[in-house]
Design a protein around this nucleic acid. Structure first.
Lengths: 347, 347
DNA sequence: CTCCTGATTGACATCGGTGTCATAGGCCTC
DNA sequence: GAGGCCTATGACACCGATGTCAATCAGGAG
């Protein structure tokens, strides 16, 4: 029983006494089949516990109920939540989800996409390493939706947040608390998203007439140990910052422990991207609620719309911006110059 | 250029002036091809930018360089880290990873596995909802590795931690701090893992001669709001607990904010499973370092071994136990209230 | 009763590769 | 120089489905 091979359409046809093609018609709800025939074929399928073979089907039909998802790293909490939401919605619509991580390697990213295309996926959701990451690739007209970062491909759409504006809001929020020395911490400027957040930070400073200081702008926070040393360096400046703007969740996940270890929880902090426990820390962390669930939902629905009704009209246009906002929790509302409030305990 | 169809093996063969089969041999590194022929075919492949079609290949060959991964929910931080590690190692070995979430629905879990089998995956890594989740399914002899929970399938292996023993260690640790009223908080007892952790908790109480109290054993912590209300209820008991043992990360992620909101950070806590920020909270959270990266690594290597060398010998046996240990950070070392040390008659 | 039409159905090619087996030479042996 | 053997290659079937197009058949029209 366990060793028995699965029934094929041929077996079903033989069992029902019809041709393979007729069985295929029943399988595909072709209306040109007599009711009686349909009933007996259906009965045979049940009797033999028939399951269609997706491989053979997609080989011949050139399509497949699978959606490929390419992300930077599935282990990132933001990405995991994003993918979870995408998978949930696509699964409801009967699609399988294939996930692969690019780890920021362009070559790997392109080879994954190529593989998905070869596999005849029905559509792609891609978190591109750059605007032109898929430049010149043969996509066979597949619907592509880029997430979290703007991408470009013929007829594609991108679901993003307004990184620049939100970074400006976050930074302005700190300025409004009286801060003028605000450190910007991010990882390398290889991704457009990161660049836009830098621009938004600079926008806010300019709006407030504050001159930006290169010493306070760090784009080398690549991992937790590095974040720790960057914090040390920044604190040791002649004019150290009184506030920090963290440009993404991964960096935040390094900054928070770093501040705790250093005993510098007096430092104001606004983080781009919410994260688990942010509300339970002391102080609780003020964040830009860059919601992966919402972005994932919009991306999945956008792709589904194109899968169901392939049209030249792009619902929502080539770039769809998902709203996000600042959540005040405490760390972002710490005023500048704590010594003016009470005698300093530290040092 | 973008509209041009991809080259097939037939095109390559024609271009090189050989038969399709010979081109296929070159593609598969078959040694029985003359060097000159090999070189010209290789040149043609490059010239035509040939990429093999994985669909056609797996249809005929009955195998595929894809590994299916079935987990409970890819959005869970523990799961995301586990999958990330598995994906990284399998990708290095040239395998694609297919991920799908079962959301604890047996029916969905089985249909995903069935789909993977139909797709001719080379192997499966499954986080099973129960020991017999795959019972009776035709697996076509696929190598299967279960992760985090023991599963059963012909010739399968499971990579797990000793949940029962670790739960005992965690609970004993709290008892060693003088606690005798220790609450156990977990989600529903549908997964063996959870059941084993309950048993370990009871083992520790028994070892210490403490009678277990059903009021302190809660298996209904299904989501964050529920965790909050469970905490309220437990605190309101006539004899409230002085310590909590959290049976998994998802529950911990509810307990910690709950304790902070209630201002009950005096409560001792040991959490099964490490999580981001655990070391930065006040107090920092003592955990059982149930490392997803380590489990994922062992699972991936175990599967790879079977993929490369299909043998009846199971390397490491049917059940592989990954070590884990307790990390003291503070919350688990909060002593019981002084008065509970003095003699008192319970019940 | 024959012809036409539309509804059903099936034979066969096909998707892009791989497995089996046969075949054509080249080289060695006796 | 014939037989044997090994190497390199190709012809062909096949994996499990779908697309094309022709064939069959019943019923209504003339």
């Amino acid at each position: 029983m366990t060793a028995m091979k699965d029934a094929t359409l041929r077996d079903v046809a033989a069992h029902a006494g019809v041709s393979i093609k007729t069985a295929s018609r029943v399988l595909n709800d072709d209306p040109r089949v007599a009711d009686g025939t349909r009933a007996s074929v259906t009965a045979s399928m049940v009797a033999l516990a028939y399951q269609p073979d997706p491989t053979a089907r997609s080989l011949r039909a050139g399509r497949d109920r699978t959606v490929g998802v390419v992300v930077e790293s599935i282990g990132d909490v933001f990405v995991a939540a994003l993918v979870a939401q995408i998978e949930r919605l696509l699964a409801e619509a009967g699609y399988q989800v294939l996930v692969a991580s690019s780890y920021r390697e362009l070559e790997r990213e392109r080879s994954i996409v190529s593989n998905f295309v070869q596999r005849r996926c029905a559509g792609l959701i891609v978190m591109p390493s750059s605007l032109d990451a898929l430049q010149g690739m043969p996509l066979r007209g597949l619907p592509v939706v880029f997430v979290d970062r703007e991408g470009s491909a013929p007829g594609s759409q991108s679901v993003i947040v307004n990184d620049r504006d939100l970074a400006r809001v976050a930074t302005s929020h700190l300025i409004a608390q009286g801060h003028r020395r605000i450190a910007l911490m991010s990882d390398a400027l290889v991704v457009d998203t990161t660049r836009h957040r830098h621009e938004g930070y600079l926008d806010a400073l300019r709006d407030a007439g504050i001159e930006s200081d290169p010493e306070l702008i760090r784009d080398d926070c690549i991992d937790e140990p590095r974040v720790f040393s960057v914090l040390d360096e920044v604190f040791a400046l002649d004019e150290p910052p009184t506030a920090i703007f963290s440009a993404n969740t991964r960096v935040s996940l390094g900054i928070v422990p770093g501040l705790h270890v250093a005993g510098r929880t007096d430092m104001a902090l606004v983080a781009f991207g919410d994260f688990p426990m942010a509300a339970s820390l002391k102080p609780a962390v003020t964040v830009i609620d860059h919601s992966p669930a919402r972005i994932g939902e919009v991306a999945a629905r956008t792709l589904l719309a194109r899968l169901i009704e392939p049209s030249d009209q792009l619902q929502g246009g080539p770039v769809i911006t998902v709203p996000a906002h600042l959540i005040e929790r405490g760390s972002g509302e710490i005023p500048a110059e704590p010594r003016s409030r009470s005698p300093r305990v530290r040092r």
